[in-house]
Design a protein around this nucleic acid. Structure first.
Lengths: 332, 332
DNA sequence: TGATGATGTGCATACGTATGTCAATCTAGG
DNA sequence: CCTAGATTGACATACGTATGCACATCATCA
């Protein structure tokens, strides 16, 4: 049924290996023969079998990308640039949504159907990186990383990001400050909160337990937690959200409850997703080059794959956060 | 380096084929032997090579998904359910962003590295479906479909959706009506506009060229086209947008220009993305079961793959649209 | 007790490509 | 004109799994 290199060889009057070499541009095959082979291949509509090639070269030119919730508006902005950069470098992308069960020893990643993995989903205590290391499967952390670190990673300086938000809030005169953070099990959740806490503490401002809410990086976390935070007395005048999606959830909760932003409440997000700039939200947030970060992760991974362990140490690319002041903050 | 079934065979004291059979649950191998093999495999951490299996079975348990712009907020809601259903049925997902160049004869789809394709990106005149058919590559249309149809597809009744919007606008007393539609080259763009036109015409209302704008299904299309539409005299009092993302763009343009929605302008979208229900937008729109549609597409494709052409005719699943009236419309 | 069938395992091979090795042909230099 | 080297292509084989087929073992029944 399917056309193989043998069929091409027969038609071109050469051997199968010659077909392989001719099509791959091996200089040992003469121009005349190459022409003939190419012509035969085109005539038959020959497309080399990827499985055959993989088996022979022990390489798949495929990369896995692990994410959690695909419908979270954040991920597309990671996946888009990743896909493009991988494609540019000759790799294809397989998408894996994280399984709820043991993330360790995921057979899907170990059957040699991919050359490497982008982990965009790591929790600090996951066993997956260790497992991948033991198996010699190249990987890179994107956005989040695991605890031990010591691996390739492309991340934001989350702690600095948290700091800069706190400092701005203090500068604006806020004293009653709260946070709706991401999960403590993620570096993006933990470190943003950490930097925020540190900077507040340095300004002599506490962050009591009642002023701290946490949840997944989704709309619901912001939407569902704002009211409880605002019902405390004294009510916080500013809330830092662990990412833009949470902030947008909080913004909508404020709208629902008749809380005016920024008049009654200052809200700050993190990520500067395109939608943060929409008039509807006009969200003050923390920006970093998400696009470059994803692209860089693809680059790190491909280099690791092709570098055949020839790479020294582990490379950690840290992107600087910048405060973007739009319309959801206000001096107190 | 990597553990193969031969290694397992040696350790278990059986032949390689027996390992294969034992691990795949072939009933011809005795329970005792199976135990021994499983134990050896576990001890060595054996994971079968996907390339070897593919080569042997001529099957990859992999499905390609073609999309256009990954960062469009619409696609995640397609990809998410697709991924989950494919996984549930034992398939993995490869993600392909459409190339700008010739979509026809895409080698990435023809190297037998996937068992089938979900086309979520089809334009009415694409040559890709024909090419895939000729090659015997199973595929299914999702959301959009090509002109000739006659293939498996999971789509909304776009024309009915357009109709129901027009009828509602007429009922609300609007007479000066405009549309910001999707591309004419897509069935989602074309048919929604068509149904809208028909229903308006039946009510004796025209849709002159000046009241029609078109563009890609993105934020910018709504954001960039609303002002020109409203500057016409008489200005339209209602605008139907080809999808929610366009509508949200238009909504933001209205906000920018001080046009009050729904007081000054009625806006209707299409898709009912989760974000359409957010307080910020409170968008009146057309709902259909996007989740079920994506899931159904996965099902159609897998059945087509595994049915080995044993399927009669072509199956076209059409999901009914329902008007969801929220806060962006108003009687005239 | 010998034939029959059922059961369990090994042998051989297919799948399609890539590449190391070797042979054949050709070119050029002495 | 002969030989060394370069060029070109064929041959053989590896890659890892799955499966048709043959064979061996064992129980069963007449």
């Amino acid at each position: 049924m399917a056309i193989t290199s043998h069929d091409v060889a027969r038609l071109a009057g050469v051997s199968q290996p010659t077909v392989s070499r001719a099509l791959r541009g091996d200089k040992r095959v003469s121009e005349a023969t190459r022409q003939r082979v190419v012509q035969a291949a085109t005539a038959l509509g020959y497309v080399p079998s990827e499985a055959g090639r993989s088996l022979s070269t022990r390489t798949t030119k495929r990369v896995g990308v692990m994410v959690t919730d695909l419908t979270n508006p954040f991920y597309p902005h990671l996946i888009g640039p990743l896909h493009d950069e991988l494609e540019r470098r000759g790799y294809r992308m397989m998408l894996f949504a994280e399984r709820s069960e043991s993330a360790a020893a995921d057979e899907r990643l170990l059957d040699r159907s991919i050359d490497g993995v982008v982990l965009a989903t790591a929790t600090v205590d996951t066993a997956l990186p260790g497992e991948l290391s033991r198996r010699g499967m190249p990987f890179v952390f994107l956005n989040r990383e695991a605890a031990g670190a010591g691996n390739d990673a492309a991340v934001v300086d989350n702690e600095a990001g948290g700091r800069v938000v706190a400092e701005e809030l203090v500068r604006l005169g806020h004293r009653d400050i709260a946070i709706i953070a991401g999960p403590q099990s993620t570096t993006t959740g933990r470190d943003r909160e950490l930097g925020f806490r540190y900077a507040l503490a340095e300004a002599g401002i506490g962050l009591p337990a009642g002023r701290v809410r946490r949840g997944p990086f989704g709309f619901e976390t912001g939407y569902g937690n704002l009211a409880a935070l605002l019902s405390q007395r004294p009510a916080p005048t500013a809330v830092f959200c662990g990412n833009d999606v949470i902030a947008i959830g909080a913004l909508n909760a404020a709208m629902r409850d008749g809380v005016r932003v920024p008049d009654d409440l200052t809200l700050i997000g993190f990520d500067d997703l395109p939608m943060a700039g929409w008039e509807s939200f006009d969200l003050s947030t923390v920006r970093y080059d998400l696009n470059a970060m994803a692209t860089a992760a693809a680059g790190l991974l491909v280099e690791r794959i092709e570098g055949a362990d020839g790479l020294d140490g582990n490379r950690r690319l840290v992107f600087p956060p910048v405060l973007v002041l739009r319309g959801t903050h206000r001096a107190r």
